[in-house]
């Protein structure tokens, strides 16, 4: 009794005045960090794009020449095409394979088949491997020496060796395979959760109607997964667009520029050519592409008020 009244006394007048009663002080640390490490750098990169800045310090003057020079750079077209191929194929591969595995695991679990948790774990294991290690592991698998993993296995089967990394066209395919290997788990786990959250009543109704398995997949599962699939595809697109470590350690962008994507090109522009202005312009291009995709993403999200 005594305690309660004391609490009420302490609570009523002071609570409003307390600086922690509003959300702002709680949000402050995050806002500060985002301001210092994201907003300001992005604005600065935008500013740098309109200068002639170099990584080796010199007087900067404002000019649009860096941007124009970058747009006229013949390498840019190749790099953008590589980026589109790498990103497009990786996204399709990851989302489809992730969906297939998620469907498989859910089906297996419903029928109490052993080994499904193991399958899920194996796929997720590839996902937690550092990107650099991913590139190194696949460079060992694709090694074209007689003792390289895949080629020596092919020889055991009397199949001629394949130029996995030295042939420019193959190098892109190899890079995509390595990337799909690592990234699929993300799609799998998101789609797995989405499949599990589909209302079972829908399947019961379908069973009453005598629907076949593929009809259940086509008319119930896939339409119900539509939002999850689209959101996932766009998240994966942005992740893939930003991929850097797995490519630099697998091919380094080569042979030639065969696997040089936008992130690698941006890095090389700044840290090899010391062209800070050009690199900043490229990084703005990366941001613009991501932002465009994020806007598409936002269209498919529930309205902000719906989020508790």
């Amino acid at each position: 009794m005594n305690k309660l009244s004391g609490a009420a006394l302490r609570q009523s007048p002071t609570r409003r005045a307390s600086p922690l009663s509003g959300p702002l002080p709680w949000l402050l640390p995050v806002l500060l960090m985002i301001g210092v490490f994201y907003l300001y750098p992005i604005l600065d990169a935008l500013r740098l794009a309109f200068t002639n800045a170099s990584l080796i310090g010199r007087e900067e003057t404002y000019t649009t020449r860096s941007i124009l020079a970058m747009l006229a750079n013949p390498a840019l077209g190749t790099v953008l095409r590589n980026t589109a191929v790498f990103t497009g194929a990786s996204v399709i591969g990851q989302v489809l394979l992730g969906l297939a595995i998620a469907l498989l695991v859910v089906r297996g679990e419903r029928n109490r088949l052993p080994g499904m948790l193991a399958l899920r774990t194996i796929v997720l294991t590839a996902w937690v491997i550092p990107g650099v290690a991913n590139g190194i592991i696949w460079s060992m698998l694709f090694n074209e020496a007689p003792y390289g993993a895949i080629n020596s296995a092919l020889r055991l089967l009397d199949i001629p060796p394949v130029a996995w990394l030295s042939n420019p066209a193959n190098a892109m395919i190899s890079t995509i395979i390595a990337n799909v290997w690592q990234g699929t788990a993300f799609s799998m786990i998101v789609l797995y959760a989405a499949i599990k959250s589909i209302d079972p009543v829908l399947y019961e109704a379908a069973a009453v109607d005598g629907a076949r398995p593929w009809e259940r997949l086509w008319f119930i599962t896939l339409p119900q997964l539509r939002a999850a699939l689209i959101v996932n595809a766009i998240l994966v697109t942005i992740q893939t667009l930003n991929t850097f470590d797995a490519i630099i350690s697998l091919t380094g962008g080569g042979p030639g520029r065969a696997t040089e994507v936008l992130s690698l090109f941006t890095y090389n522009t700044v840290f090899y050519s010391y062209d800070l202005a050009g690199g900043s312009a490229l990084s703005m291009l990366m941001l613009l592409i991501s932002l465009g995709l994020a806007c598409v993403y936002a269209l498919f999200l529930p309205r902000p008020e719906a989020i508790r």
Binding site: V30, I34, F37, Y38, Y40, P41, I42, D44, A45, L48, I238, L241, N242, F244, S263, T266, Y267, V270, L276, G279, S280, S283, M284, M286, L287, S290, L291, L293, A294
Partner: peptide, 16 residues
């Protein structure tokens, strides 16, 4: 805050 996650590390690292 979620949108921030889509910014490539490379974009912020150049000025940083």
């Amino acid at each position: 805050i979620l949108a921030v996650q889509m910014v490539s590390g490379l974009v912020i690292l150049i000025p940083l």
